[in-house]
Amino acid sequence: MARAVSMRRKLTMTVLVWVVALIMFFPILYTIITSLKTEGEAAAGFSMLPSFTFESYALVLDQQDYFRPFFNSVIISIGSTVLALLISIPAAWAMAFTPTPRTRDVLMWMLSTKMMPAAGVLVPMYLIFLNTGLLDTLLGLTIILTLVNLPIVVWMLYTYFKEIPVDILEAARMDGATLPKELVYVLLPMAVPGIASTLLLNVILAWNEAFWTLRLSTTNAAPLTAFIASFSSPQGQFLAKLSAASVLAILPILLLGWFSQKQLVRGLTFGAVK
């Protein structure tokens, strides 16, 4: 039974936690505030009170195409996540329900492919993309992001599937279900929370991936990471505009994250919780 917590203690903790949370959130909050200032206000130093002007947003949207990189980001992050899920679900099923002594090694090997420094293999990948015509295409970026996130997707699904009793899958087999039916009618519906969480995390990771997307795209396929990167160097002195561009780059994923926060967190354990 939970013990009654004294009101005073609860209030103290509330204040403390809120202070910490606001400190964590402050950089984002301040960026939003700055984006609503005039350039003059922004350059004038610290102030939490903007004049609530949207002129910086208007300028940014005027000066640079926002919607194309936005849709590029949407397409490559969702596309790569769905692709990764399609490849990973069978693999995670195999690892979780027919484990062999080597399962752990395979999983660790998969993760180790992520430790390979991207910068080290950039040139070969660039040349491969150049020669296959994948450079600066959405398909190319989708493939890269799928590969980059695949190990994480497999791992998350694996830890989630492992919590499902194998009995239930065996019951489905006894009931005459073939493997595709076993997956579609039994495993996947039971794993919906885990799959949702995996999907969300990987959309976020793909959206924010800022090495390959920057290096393997120029204009056509450039997503929001490129949008902000191209903005940051020459416009560094225009703080309000830079802030507006920053907000535009992160707002979609921030909103997605806020609204799906519960689903995201539920599966975000990587098997760390038994």
Binding site: P165, D167, I168, E170, R173, M174, D175, G176, T178, M190
Partner: peptide, 16 residues
């Protein structure tokens, strides 16, 4: 197991 035409009741019931 799907092709043997047998039915099984599990200790854990294994309901969906």
């Amino acid at each position: 197991p799907a092709h043997r035409g047998l039915a099984m009741v599990f200790q854990s019931y294994a309901l969906y």
